[in-house]
Amino acid sequence: MAQINITKESPSFWRASLDNPPINLFGGQLVVEMRALLDAAENDPELTVIVFESANPDYFIAHWDLADDLSVLANQPPPVTGQQPFVDVMVRLSKLPVVTISKIRGRARGAGSEFLLATDIRFASRERTLIGQFEMSTGVPPGGGAPSRLPRLVGRGRALEILVSAEDFDGDLAERYGYVNRTIPDAELDDFVTAFATRVAAFDRGALAEMKGWVNAITLPDDNEFPPQSATFTARLGSARSQRWAAGAFAAGLQQSGDLEERLGTRSVEF
């Protein structure tokens, strides 16, 4: 794989490191590689836990790649769930019969935040985490599942605050809201997550899958909630407001290492 480095710590514990320089954008290639990872995970009878982390300490997943023409998906099989390709991956990830953990260090906005929401457990660096849904500042509502997943995770009021403010949430506030399970001092994060995942990896896959299935039945959105969100997201990307925002943001350094991406939750309202 070009953008996911998989390390098998043991037959039951995989580590998946996301690596798409310079800022870990999520685009068509990562969709392809996530599909391959999910296929492998679904069919491995020994696997019980996957830890997702980033090779870039400043960006977990910056956001969706707005310059990607998705041509890499042209020869791919149809999405398994019938959803659009990104949502298909998120739905499959949330229902995977293994425990998925996001180890968050750096920024995760837009599609990056939606990826976190689709994983089961989120542990974050206290000092180095910034997450949020910045889309509303661009004239486009989130289209990858956040309006369905966030209210079930943090409650209605806080979900609306996160979505309509389009601001960044640091580690401590994200923990207080329930956006992440807990924050850990950055120097302790790696050891903590490894110890947690190693403990889970010792448990029976079948029992874990059954338990996760029961929780899913109560907490996961119905798949029918996603298509209207995806369709609206796509339609509004072509609006004059969104196109004006994109032109200004790309001219100012969008999708490049630098101040705009570092402070996107603050600066996204400039354009």
Results as ranks from 00 to 15, higher is better:
residue 81 T to V: 03
residue 145 G to A: 12
residue 137 S to T: 13
residue 125 S to H: 02
residue 122 R to L: 01
residue 102 S to C: 09
residue 132 G to T: 01
residue 139 G to L: 09
residue 162 I to E: 14
residue 133 Q to T: 00
residue 137 S to R: 13
residue 156 R to I: 05
residue 102 S to F: 00
residue 115 F to M: 07
residue 84 Q to C: 09
residue 84 Q to Y: 09
residue 149 R to V: 01
residue 126 R to L: 13
residue 138 T to Q: 15
residue 167 E to A: 15
residue 143 G to W: 01
residue 141 P to R: 08
residue 93 L to S: 04
residue 148 S to L: 14
residue 120 D to V: 00
residue 108 A to I: 01
residue 118 A to E: 07
residue 112 G to F: 02
residue 165 S to E: 12
residue 166 A to P: 07
residue 106 G to H: 01
residue 120 D to Q: 01
residue 131 I to G: 04
residue 89 V to G: 09
residue 125 S to Q: 05
residue 149 R to M: 12
residue 91 V to G: 08
residue 100 T to N: 07
residue 148 S to C: 12
residue 161 E to Y: 08
residue 125 S to K: 04
residue 119 T to G: 00
residue 167 E to R: 14
residue 149 R to N: 06
residue 152 R to L: 10
residue 112 G to D: 11
residue 138 T to Y: 08
residue 154 V to F: 08
residue 154 V to S: 09
residue 132 G to Q: 10
residue 84 Q to R: 14
residue 105 R to C: 06
residue 95 K to L: 12
residue 119 T to L: 01
residue 86 F to I: 15
residue 142 P to I: 00
residue 83 Q to W: 02
residue 164 V to R: 15
residue 131 I to A: 15
residue 85 P to Y: 11
residue 123 F to T: 01
residue 152 R to C: 11
residue 147 P to F: 04
residue 84 Q to K: 09
residue 158 R to P: 05
residue 100 T to D: 03
residue 83 Q to E: 14
residue 101 I to D: 06
residue 80 V to R: 07
residue 154 V to G: 08
residue 108 A to Q: 06
residue 99 V to H: 14
residue 82 G to M: 03
residue 97 P to Q: 13
residue 163 L to E: 07
residue 102 S to N: 13
residue 165 S to Y: 07
residue 104 I to S: 00
residue 80 V to W: 02
residue 150 L to D: 04
residue 140 V to I: 14
residue 86 F to E: 15
residue 156 R to K: 13
residue 117 L to Y: 11
residue 161 E to W: 12
residue 133 Q to I: 02
residue 114 E to W: 01
residue 82 G to H: 06
residue 148 S to M: 15
residue 126 R to D: 10
residue 131 I to N: 04
residue 123 F to H: 00
residue 138 T to N: 11
residue 163 L to Y: 09
residue 126 R to A: 11
residue 148 S to H: 07
residue 166 A to N: 14
residue 94 S to Y: 03
